[in-house]
């Protein structure tokens, strides 16, 4: 995981947007302009038709995060943006590990690593096996480090996805905004 510098904090930003071409650039541009590196980014559909969710992980100072999120929310096609510290969300990442099949031959070691890490095998081919693990970055990295001696051919990790702990629905947030707005 990227180290935090000074008073930096890690934030997960959830952005609800219209499903429109170009919004990805508009949103990443807000970070680029401020020279903020995006540590992870995931775009997906939501439970609401036509509305996408961007989940972005960045590191920045507590006094800057609000300003940045308001700039995101200001974009015409962004419905609402929220930011959270790790404590305020439930989050996961998915990692895949491609291992040579022979790593499994002759010893139970790799199988034990998989079991101990609550990972699972999702594909077995003559030449390679693909292992999947869901978890926090520390956990998927730990598994990577343990598998490394047996020859990881390829490792990939998804961006973070997160669900916020507060119970308030997006719809309610938007209704509140409607009520305080004029058009």
């Amino acid at each position: 995981m990227q180290a935090l510098e000074g008073n930096q904090q890690r934030y997960t930003i959830s952005i609800f947007t219209e499903d429109k071409v170009g919004l990805l650039s508009r949103i990443t541009g807000i970070f680029t302009r401020r020279k903020i590196n995006v540590d992870s980014l995931t775009v997906s559909e939501t439970e609401n038709k036509g509305i996408s969710r961007f989940t972005v992980v960045i590191r920045t100072l507590p006094e800057r995060i609000g300003v940045i999120v308001r700039q995101i929310e200001k974009q015409v096609e962004v419905l609402k943006a929220f930011y959270y510290t790790d404590e305020q969300i439930v989050y996961q990442e998915l990692a895949l590990y491609k291992m040579p099949t022979e790593a499994f031959a002759g010893s139970q070691a790799v199988e034990k690593i998989i079991r101990d890490n609550y990972a699972r095998v999702i594909t077995i081919e003559p030449e390679f096996i693909v292992i999947e693990k869901t978890g926090h970055e520390e956990e998927t990295t730990k598994l990577f480090n343990e598998l490394k001696p047996y020859g990881v051919l390829s490792f990939v990790r998804s961006g973070r996805i997160a669900i916020a702990k507060p119970m308030k629905l997006l719809k309610v947030h938007l209704e509140e905004l409607e009520n305080i707005s004029e058009f």
Partner: peptide, 14 residues
Amino acid sequence: CLKIRSYFPKRKVD
């Protein structure tokens, strides 16, 4: 155009 659902141009006075 009268309104865009993702766009809140102006707030009522609080």
